[in-house]
Simulated scan of single mutants.
Amino acid sequence: MSSIAPSSARQVRLMARTGVLSGPTANLASGFVQANLAVLPRDLAYDFLLFCQRNPKPCPLLGVSEPGATSIPDLGDDLDIRTDVPRYRVWKKGVLVQELQDVTEIWREDLVTFALGCSFSFEEALLAAGVPVRHIEEGRNVPMFRSSIETTPSGVFSGPLVVSMRPMLPEQAIKAVQITGRFPSVHGAPIHLGDPETIGVNDLATPDYGDAVTIRPGEIPVFWACGVTPQAAIVRARPDFSITHAPGHMLLTDILNNRLSI
């Protein structure tokens, strides 16, 4: 990755498109909304749209493409779904078969792209309020876990709620609830604070996705619904073909974070 920090979403997209950026996007182009991706064949798009509507905390919809379209105009100018994510995951029958930086060669005319809100977007507001974000401090990807909470099914799609975790002091956690509750389009307030085993997370040192982070004395884990949830649903649904972002490697949009605050 370039040593020059990108200041706009378009710069991040161009860095991904040209192969300069291949790592996580947390804290890049501060101020711009980041999006999770789920790309599915047209015959599964309606079921997945209902899945998102029935599970708005982990799957807050920011935009949906036309079949075969390689952009979602409402999300940004000069945006190419096939190239502008730093790392993609390619799935066949629910099995991860490849991680790529460019999916142009495997793109199909029947594919529909869903862009979902990402918790990286509310981290700007947390930092501005003096609430620490540990994975940013430590230069790591956010830790994510498959919980024991089940999503509401739709057609072939179902599965566990995936959660992202940020450790905080209790008073910081209270502030974080108040701040992130103003951002329902990017997962909103936490779904759980404290004892991780209550939601089926048994070991904070071994996340299912992302990286472990330091938990300091007196801190509690704070869990948010996570946009990696569709990947767990895709594994269970076993579609013949699908594409997602790699966890933590998001699509930067031209939407400003403050536009999503209520």
Rank of each mutant, 00 (worst) to 15 (best):
V235A: 12
T198R: 13
S8D: 01
M250L: 08
F223V: 05
P190Q: 08
G227F: 05
V85L: 01
L193G: 14
D77Q: 13
V162R: 04
V103N: 08
L252T: 03
V20N: 11
V186C: 12
S185N: 12
I179T: 09
L256M: 10
D254Q: 10
V131M: 11
L37K: 12
A173P: 13
L62G: 09
L21E: 09
G31T: 13
G210N: 11
G63Y: 01
I179G: 05
A129I: 11
D80Q: 02
D47Q: 10
A233C: 04
D78A: 02
I136K: 04
G155I: 11
C59W: 01
L49V: 03
T70C: 04
T25Y: 00
P73Y: 02
R42Q: 12
V156P: 08
F157L: 03
V95W: 09
H249A: 03
R17Y: 00
R42E: 15
V162F: 07
T151L: 01
C59Y: 01
N36P: 05
L127S: 11
E150P: 05
H249G: 10
L256T: 15
V12F: 00
G218D: 14
Q34L: 04
G23V: 02
M250F: 10
M144W: 06
P58K: 06
L40T: 14
R134A: 15
